[in-house]
Amino acid sequence: MAIPTTRTALSSRAVVFGFGAHSVIDDMPVLLEMTQLADREGLDLFSLSDHPYIGQRLDAYATVGFVVGRTQNLAGFANVSNLPTRPPAMLARTVTTLSALSDGRVVLGMGAGGLWERIAAMGVEPLTPAQAVEAFEEAIVLVGKLSGGGPPVTFKGRHYQVEQIEPAPVAAPPVWTGSVGPKSLAATGRVADGWIPGHAADWLSARYVASRPVVDEAARSVGRDPREVRTIFNFPGQITERPLARTRDGDGRWIGGSVEQWIEELTAAVVEHGASGFMLFSPRGGTPDLPSLGRWAGDIAPAVREAVAQHAG
């Protein structure tokens, strides 16, 4: 089976595979090695967390730009952008430029902001949870308006305003959100292209079962097909040499297993639960190690793609 190009995979119903990192500056050589391995082995994307108030962390957008410039097919994104510290008009310029330079190898991950004490310490005016969700939805809309060409844009939102700003001639990349609460989930259904369930919740979790219908109903309320909003899972776990007797713990959370057990689990997630993608993390939710990434890219992802294609055919 031919692996789809990154741009096709990100914009179509193809299942996407990637990995996530929480990298500090000293980790850069290892991160480069990992992204080059991922690029060679046909993974679709990598992600970095976006916590600009942590001085040791690599800046997500500077790193994405650097990495996509050193790879051929791998896409990158902030998982998810710390919106309160990145005004949407400037964020639109950043992501459309990255998209133009990389031939579409970027996703716009968006979050409303969570650690408000740390965000406020950077000089950002704190918002209430309701205000943060309003700003989050406005920002997604504004990024779209400032992309794809057209006449100058005037936007008068409650939280963001621009006056006669020329849009970039480049289309906005897909927008994937990290929504958790019901209002944020509804905003995702109305205006986003993908959803990354919070707290590494998977398709069998109570969080997902309760949350996905909120996204779907909001999508239908504005005339969208809910399937337009893809679900991409941050998925931590251990890849073991031998099968495990149990692949989930007492709370039902995935803990890992052999390559064959991963293939079976992820294939079922796509075929039976409509999963659209998976971002590998370490068992504790951090950056995976190189041997695990090699198995993920070289063994698990191709086999799941093949199994899904056989089921569809």
Results as ranks from 00 to 15, higher is better:
A2M: 09
I3Y: 11
S12Y: 07
R13H: 14
R13M: 02
G18Q: 04
F19W: 11
A21M: 14
H22Q: 14
P29F: 06
V30C: 00
L32C: 05
E33N: 07
M34V: 00
M34S: 08
Q36V: 04
A38D: 10
L45V: 13
S47G: 14
S47L: 03
L48W: 09
S49N: 13
H51E: 09
P52W: 09
Q56F: 01
L58V: 11
D59C: 11
D59L: 08
A60I: 02
A62Q: 13
A62D: 07
V68T: 15
V68I: 15
G69T: 12
G69E: 13
G69S: 12
Q72R: 15
Q72F: 00
N73V: 01
F77S: 02
S81I: 08
L83M: 13
P84H: 00
R86F: 06
P87V: 12
A89H: 15
R93W: 04
R93L: 08
R93G: 14
V95G: 06
T96H: 14
T97C: 10
S99G: 14
S99V: 01
L101P: 07
L101C: 11
G104N: 03
G113I: 01
G114S: 09
G114P: 00
W116H: 11
R118V: 00
I119E: 10
A121G: 13
G123L: 04
L127Q: 14
T128E: 11
P129G: 04
E134N: 13
E137K: 14
E138W: 10
A139Y: 04
I140E: 09
L142Y: 11
L142R: 05
V143C: 05
G144A: 09
K145Y: 00
L146S: 08
S147Y: 11
G148P: 06
G149D: 10
G149M: 05
G150H: 11
V153I: 15
G157A: 03
Y160Q: 07
Q161K: 15
E166V: 15
A168M: 15
V170S: 02
V170R: 01
A171S: 13
W176N: 02
W176K: 05
K183Y: 05
L185A: 10
L185R: 08
A187Q: 04
A192E: 05
H199G: 13
A200S: 12
D202V: 02
D202W: 12
A210Y: 05
S211C: 11
V214A: 04
V215N: 09
V215D: 09
D216P: 07
D216W: 10
A218F: 09
A219Q: 03
D225P: 03
P226G: 03
R227H: 12
R227W: 01
T231M: 08
F235R: 13
P236D: 11
G237C: 05
T240K: 08
T240N: 11
R242T: 13
P243K: 03
R246T: 10
R246A: 15
T247P: 06
R248A: 13
D249C: 04
D249I: 01
D249L: 02
G250N: 10
G257F: 10
G257N: 06
W262C: 08
W262M: 08
I263M: 01
T267L: 06
T267A: 06
A268N: 10
V271Y: 05
G277T: 04
F281D: 00
S282A: 15
R284V: 03
G286R: 05
P291F: 04
S292N: 11
L293K: 03
G294P: 00
R295E: 12
A303V: 09
A309R: 13
Q310V: 12
G313Q: 10
G313W: 00
G313A: 12
